[in-house]
Amino acid sequence: MRQLINALIKYKNTLLYTVLLMISLLFLNLRSFYHQSVFSNAALVLSSNINLAGQNISNYLDLASRNEKLIAENIKLKGLELILFSEQAQKDQAINSFAFQVLGARIIKNNYQSARNYLIIDQGYLDGIEKEMGVISSDGIVGIVNQITANFSSVISILHRDIKINASFKKNGAYGSLSWQGNHPKRMKLDDISTINPVVVGDTIVTGGMSDYFPHGIPIGKVLNFKKPKLEGYYDIDIELFSNLTQKEFVYILKNKKKDQLNQLKNESR
């Protein structure tokens, strides 16, 4: 008890200050609407955060029963899906006749700062990935599979200085090769378009069918500006990509089912 009193005496100034500060804050709260609103706002933020934490904990403890509910719902939906599939057999035939098979993957690592960029995706040869498959995203092309392991693959990004992609104009099919200059992740250059073809700013560029990697007609970008040489020759065209490769998360891998035939044909005609 004596120690308590001694402590009180020792810190009496601080205690007095604290008490008087509380009184002045009350006074402030009473007299000023602005301060009142700030205080009540702070109290609201505090209480809502505490409530949120409590909510999260109770949600977590509730997970098991929720999981059971979800499984039950999934079983029901799976049954419905199977019924739908049996009705859809005809549509599947159309998909099968398309020369490319589509596989999905998630980007694990995406690089776009250096001059030669690679991506890593979470599918490997166990999932049916092979070398030299084309990789596209929902709004453009991404690259070509370079190396594969059991569960992962590395993809040469189109943002790679040494890669050239066959691309053509959507309006007239004039084709050239698309390459990256290494500066801006949305700018590429289209070469080898002869000046006999008309070019307008804003023309859409799609993949050309000359490569084995991509089917014809995937939109890549549009013409940003172009330079015509003084004499006849080839245009110098800047392309702006539709897709932003710096913020991709999911990609699709195109498996060319008829690649064997193509290679055989190429070798024979050599």
Binding site: N13, L21, S24, L25, F27, L28, R31, S32, Y34, H35
Partner: peptide, 19 residues
Amino acid sequence: DLLTQGSGGHTIATLTIAF
């Protein structure tokens, strides 16, 4: 603060500086 219809700033500031 009472005499000048202040909100309470002088109270807290003066109290703090005295402390």
